[in-house]
Simulated scan of single mutants.
Amino acid sequence: MKSLISILLLALFSATASAQFGFFDQMFGGGGGGSGGGGSQQQQARQQQQRQQQNVPSDSSLYQQNYDNYPCENYLCPDTLACVHFPHHCPCPFPANEDKFETGDGHRLCVSKGGFKAGEAARKVELARKGLL
């Protein structure tokens, strides 16, 4: 009887420890999934494959193929692939981080918002346009 209670307590404690550490494995990227670490190995292999795909030599063929096959009857913006009527209507690639300015000669500028107070980027663009900056 005493050994049966010991076995039950041991089983209870090991189940509690397994659940507790399984929780930490999931919280801190250990994979888990009840596969004894196999899920973690698959996740690591997937991440390594993604890093290898990101670190390929410079090759613009995929971009060129998308650009050439993009349906646009007007002007196709080269950096955003937006289809607009005029080049200066192209949006900035990162509108949350950039302010857009249209120049008088039909171009647009995208200027980083970083560190400037509201309207400061526009003031600096205007000063540069006038040759004062």
Rank of each mutant, 00 (worst) to 15 (best):
residue 1 M to W: 03
residue 2 K to V: 08
residue 3 S to G: 01
residue 4 L to I: 14
residue 5 I to G: 05
residue 6 S to H: 14
residue 7 I to F: 05
residue 8 L to R: 15
residue 9 L to H: 02
residue 10 L to V: 08
residue 10 L to M: 10
residue 10 L to D: 05
residue 11 A to L: 14
residue 11 A to H: 03
residue 11 A to R: 00
residue 13 F to G: 00
residue 14 S to F: 12
residue 16 T to W: 12
residue 16 T to C: 12
residue 17 A to N: 02
residue 17 A to E: 07
residue 17 A to L: 10
residue 18 S to L: 12
residue 19 A to E: 08
residue 20 Q to D: 04
residue 22 G to Y: 01
residue 24 F to A: 13
residue 24 F to Y: 04
residue 25 D to I: 07
residue 25 D to Y: 07
residue 25 D to W: 07
residue 26 Q to C: 03
residue 27 M to Y: 09
residue 29 G to C: 11
residue 32 G to Q: 00
residue 32 G to Y: 00
residue 35 S to A: 15
residue 36 G to L: 12
residue 38 G to H: 04
residue 39 G to C: 03
residue 39 G to R: 14
residue 40 S to W: 03
residue 41 Q to M: 15
residue 41 Q to I: 11
residue 41 Q to E: 09
residue 44 Q to S: 08
residue 44 Q to E: 14
residue 46 R to E: 09
residue 48 Q to G: 06
residue 49 Q to E: 09
residue 49 Q to F: 12
residue 51 R to W: 04
residue 53 Q to A: 15
residue 55 N to Q: 13
residue 55 N to K: 12
residue 56 V to Q: 12
residue 58 S to Y: 10
residue 59 D to Y: 02
residue 59 D to Q: 02
residue 60 S to N: 15
residue 61 S to Q: 13
residue 61 S to M: 06
residue 61 S to D: 07
residue 62 L to R: 01
residue 63 Y to M: 04
residue 63 Y to F: 15
residue 64 Q to H: 04
residue 64 Q to F: 06
residue 64 Q to S: 07
residue 67 Y to N: 10
residue 70 Y to H: 15
residue 72 C to G: 04
residue 74 N to F: 02
residue 75 Y to F: 11
residue 75 Y to G: 06
residue 77 C to A: 09
residue 79 D to I: 01
residue 80 T to L: 00
residue 81 L to M: 04
residue 82 A to C: 15
residue 84 V to L: 11
residue 84 V to W: 06
residue 85 H to D: 15
residue 86 F to M: 13
residue 86 F to W: 12
residue 88 H to K: 10
residue 88 H to N: 09
residue 94 F to S: 15
residue 94 F to E: 14
residue 94 F to Q: 09
residue 100 K to V: 01
residue 101 F to R: 03
residue 102 E to V: 14
residue 102 E to I: 03
residue 103 T to R: 14
residue 103 T to F: 00
residue 104 G to E: 14
residue 104 G to I: 12
residue 106 G to H: 11
residue 108 R to G: 01
residue 110 C to P: 04
residue 112 S to N: 09
residue 112 S to F: 03
residue 115 G to H: 08
residue 115 G to N: 06
residue 115 G to Q: 06
residue 117 K to D: 02
residue 118 A to K: 13
residue 118 A to F: 02
residue 119 G to M: 03
residue 120 E to R: 09
residue 121 A to G: 01
residue 121 A to R: 03
residue 122 A to H: 01
residue 123 R to N: 10
residue 123 R to T: 15
residue 124 K to V: 00
residue 124 K to T: 00
residue 126 E to S: 11
residue 128 A to R: 08
residue 129 R to K: 05
residue 130 K to T: 00
residue 133 L to H: 10
